[in-house]
């Protein structure tokens, strides 16, 4: 990849809207609030890989664990993570890998470690991750406004494991996960990122919703 190509996250421009409130289309969304109960923050550019394989194959699981340092979650609707990487359960033979390790490097390592009937697809260009944090009541209502899924039924997350669900979010879809600090991560399609970010600001307006760079 040539070095002079600038790579930007899908929502790279969003925090600028909040610092230039007068030019924003809906100033009341961004600067009408003094108190902010909710904070939206996009993760820096990261790697997303879609991994498919046989989760009951011990060789497959141990090979993935060796590369990422994270065990493969086989329980539906769960994820495992460490400092650098996370593995989210998407289906009985499908996982989403999220990592700050370079995607092509990670893919090469996995291809080397894995064999047999597997699939690894680099989908980094098509996704982004947004973290939602803030007042627990406000967060709960924001999620109730956005999704039909019952997030309140989830137990609290551990530092390296928690729940995840791929479900409807506003009029798009997202993988929603809970974290040990009480916040939620949303993994979105790049093409829906702008829509969902605006949705979050609108839905969170009653509590005060701030974008963090």
């Amino acid at each position: 990849m040539p070095n002079n190509i600038t790579r930007e996250t899908p929502l790279h421009y969003f925090h600028k809207l909040s610092s230039h409130a007068s030019s924003a289309q809906s100033p009341e969304i961004f600067n009408g609030q003094v108190e902010f109960a909710l904070v939206v923050k996009e993760a820096p550019l990261s790697s997303f890989l879609n991994l498919r394989g046989n989760g009951s194959d011990k060789g497959f699981c141990s090979a993935v664990a060796e590369v990422l340092g994270v065990t493969v979650p086989t329980e539906p609707g769960t994820y495992h993570s460490n400092k650098d990487s996370s593995i989210y359960w998407l289906g009985p033979d499908e996982w989403l890998l999220f990592s700050c390790i370079d995607a092509s490097n990670l893919e090469a390592q996995l291809r080397k470690a894995l064999s047999g009937h597997i699939s690894i697809v680099d989908i980094s260009g098509g996704q982004t991750l947004i973290n939602l944090r803030g007042d627990p009541c406000a967060l709960a209502i924001l999620l109730k406004k956005s999704s039909v899924y019952d997030f309140a039924a989830w137990p609290d997350a551990d530092i390296n494991a928690g729940r995840c669900a791929q479900t409807t979010f506003a009029k798009a879809t997202a993988v929603v996960t809970n974290k040990a600090d009480g916040s939620y991560d949303l993994i979105l399609r790049r093409s829906f990122a702008d829509y969902i970010a605006k949705w979050l600001l609108d839905a969170g307006q009653e509590f005060g919703c701030r974008i963090e760079a």
Partner: peptide, 12 residues
């Protein structure tokens, strides 16, 4: 039966 959860019809 895969997610082992009750989900809303709009997901299907």
């Amino acid at each position: 039966p895969h997610c082992r959860e009750d989900r809303e019809e709009e997901e299907y």
